[in-house]
């Protein structure tokens, strides 16, 4: 029953649209450094925006399994943006290609080709924020899928240059996390986002007892 509720919650949240701040495409000729320590993964992404719809960069990602690290390039494409007087919506495609050490759940010495395809969507106003992300991550012979959704509200609406604060909750559902044991993983993470100027900081704590610490800086 708990699992059913968790799946239902993830489904409902995924129907909401996704976050600003962590957008994979910045302004042309802008760099973005994204460092994420989340419930199910830790990653570092440095990207350069070439035009209003495209960014390319480097990605180092640890999926939360012992010594399983992906290193490679990432291509981000803004598929569609909806600009409205009081809101903005976006859909993104993210493609990664590189190499990874270790299996999903066993540390192995072999280095093999790995990659991912991710689709993300977000919609936000100055008060509300929703985001969803679906991912397929593969390493030779094995694949893992995951979905993530986030809902946020700003307790006060700040203007440009002031400190923006958001209260958010993120649901993360990963399938085939441990292929040998057939376990899936679902986590819920309440978090607080602080956003000022070119910097964004998120702090939270997940239901699997993992702290969340995310930092994004644009330059």
């Amino acid at each position: 029953m708990k699992k059913l509720c968790a799946v239902a919650l993830a489904g409902v949240m995924a129907l909401q649209a996704a976050p600003a701040g962590a957008r994979p495409v910045s302004y042309p000729q802008g760099w973005t450094l994204m460092q994420m320590n989340e419930a199910e993964a830790n990653w570092l992404h440095l990207h350069y925006t070439t035009d209003p719809r495209t960014s390319i960069g480097l990605k180092i990602e640890n999926q939360g399994y012992a010594d399983h690290v992906f290193v490679g390039g990432q291509y981000n494409r803004l598929l569609k943006r909806w600009n409205a007087p009081n809101s903005q919506g976006n859909t993104y495609l993210k493609l990664g290609l590189g190499v990874a050490d270790g299996d999903f759940n066993h540390a192995l010495d072999a280095t093999k080709a790995a990659g991912f395809v991710r689709f993300a969507a977000d919609w936000e106003t100055r008060r509300w924020f929703t985001a969803a992300n679906a991912s397929v991550y593969a390493r030779e012979g094995k694949a893992m899928t995951s979905q993530k959704a986030r809902l946020g509200v700003a307790p006060y609406v700040a203007d440009f240059g002031a400190l923006h604060t958001w209260l958010m909750v993120e649901g993360n559902w990963t399938q085939n996390r441990d292929a040998d044991q057939g376990q899936d993983a679902f986590t819920v993470t309440p978090l607080v986002r602080f956003f000022k100027g070119n910097s964004l900081l998120e702090v939270g704590y997940s239901s699997n007892d993992e702290p969340l610490f995310n930092f994004v800086y644009r330059f």
Binding site: A20, G21, R81, N83, E124, T125, F160, F195, G197
Partner: peptide, 8 residues
């Protein structure tokens, strides 16, 4: 139109 956050 579409400017909703500091990054925008």
């Amino acid at each position: 139109i579409g400017m909703v956050c500091d990054f925008c």
